Simulated assay, not measured.
Amino acid sequence: MKTWTKTACALAILAISQTAYAEEAPQSQRELFNQAYSQYKEAIAERKNFNAVKFAKQSYLLGKVLYKDSPKDLAALTVNYATSLSNIRQSDKKKRKVTHKKAKALFDEALTIYQGIKPAQTTAIIDTHLKKAKVMPTTGGTKDEIEKALELAEKNGDEVFVAKVKMLAFDTLNRGKYTRHLRGLTIEALDTFQEKLPENAIDRVMAEFNVARIYQDEKKSNKAEKLYLNVIKQFDTLDYSHPFKLGAHSRLISIYEKRGDSDKSTEHCIAIGKMKPWQEDQDPVPLYRTALDYPTNYAMLGKEGHVVLSFTISKSGTVKDIEVLQSEGGRKFEKSAKKMLAEWRYAPKFENGEAVDAKNMKIRLDFTLG
């Protein structure tokens, strides 16, 4: 299997040339640009979206001077600024609308620049259309941008290339919920990969993972299970822990626990424990959790409270030896908290290559009426 390269990277890498500075630009402007662009990349790596917007804007404004004779680089800076705006999460609908409108205008600006460059910047234009789709105010507008990207792909590539663009659309626009249009494109892409590519081709395996997610969300667990198992099988040939392999193990735990098949779930809990060994100061996160059952009569009375529990994570990732350390609100909160925690699954702790019990774990569970 080839070394993993994300589909988006294969289609469009909008990198800034290190040699494209205008010679006549003042040294201070070059230094300011270098600093702003470095801070932008750092903000992206750290997922600090508001910082990314700030430094992407600075890079863009300085780039209008420094890269006025290098349209490809100027277009890339424009896309960076627009993309950083589109990545901001805003609960206020009016503010989000204004932000998306600004991002859309910048994407249009970048498309105008790209379309004037020879030779044609097909992959960059496709990438920009898909990113623009994310900020369109209507579902129809989003679909139109996807179709523009696909039309370009069909003119300039074979079936596999078109399928890669469909998967790039999924990667760019996936927000945890799938429109019927996006779902259809993703499954079409997998059909193409399964027909045209070998079983261990990275694009095919990544598509299998994403389609499995769709099937799992649609409660088609048998279809999802089959695809997740094949993802694990293919990545077992690699000598490092791939995030899709980890994700497949984690999602299979949820499928098996909901079926009541804890033995199969255990296999994948142990696999994750081997892939991601515990750190000494680690606060373990459950791989599978059930919802807290709020006692009905307490809720009717408006009672709130909390429970602090100690417990052990067994060698198979189950929870045992649950004890109440402290609680407030009533015994029914304690009973509900213990029942829920007993159903959770964790990755077991490994020492010297062997799974061991992780004792003296602690968790606080809050019962609040929102």
Rank of each mutant, 00 (worst) to 15 (best):
R89F: 13
G317Y: 06
S91N: 07
Y60F: 14
K104W: 10
S250Y: 10
T172R: 04
I272H: 10
K349A: 03
K177V: 15
K177M: 14
Y81M: 08
V53D: 02
H181V: 03
G247Y: 09
F107Q: 00
L14S: 05
P137S: 04
S262P: 00
D92R: 07
L369A: 07
S265Q: 02
P348C: 05
R180I: 09
A342T: 02
N51W: 10
E351S: 09
L130Q: 06
G63W: 02
A248W: 03
K335D: 12
D236T: 03
M275H: 08
K57S: 09
V160R: 05
E145A: 04
P243Y: 07
V324F: 00
I363K: 06
L246N: 06
E225Q: 14
A163T: 07
Q121E: 15
G317A: 06
K359Q: 13
F55E: 00
P295K: 07
R345M: 09
K274S: 08
E23Q: 11
A20V: 00
M1T: 06
K233R: 13
T123A: 12
G329E: 09
I88V: 14
Q279F: 04
K118N: 09
D293S: 09
L197G: 00
E154I: 04
K148L: 09
H242C: 09
K64W: 08
P198Y: 08
G329C: 07
Q121W: 08
A347L: 06
D217A: 15
N87I: 03
Y40I: 09
T128D: 01
A224N: 03
E154A: 15
N49S: 11
N200F: 08
K220A: 13
V65K: 14
F209T: 02
P137V: 04
T186L: 05
M1P: 00
K233N: 15
L32Y: 10
A75Y: 02
L32F: 10
A82W: 07
V79S: 03
F170M: 06
E257Y: 06
D366K: 01
L229V: 03
T128Y: 08
D203Y: 01
M340S: 00
E334Y: 00
K196T: 02
R47Q: 15
A20H: 12
